[in-house]
């Protein structure tokens, strides 16, 4: 369900260690981008729970 668009990042060596570092870096970059994005305090998450 995920395409190359989601996969495209700078080329990383094909070793477990390098890919593990790259994965953590990707999460960190995403977290930083999200942190920078300011939202109103009233904004609720976009999911719903049906009891």
């Amino acid at each position: 369900m995920v395409t190359r668009a989601a996969a495209q990042t700078a080329s990383v060596p094909l070793t477990t260690a390098a890919q593990a570092v790259a994965a953590k870096d990707a999460n960190q970059r995403a977290a930083e981008a999200l942190a920078k994005f300011e939202i109103p305090i009233s904004t609720e998450p976009a999911f719903q729970f049906k009891a």
Partner: peptide, 11 residues
Amino acid sequence: DYLKAMRIRSL
């Protein structure tokens, strides 16, 4: 981070 992403997703 997950919740922040889901909150931005609302917007």
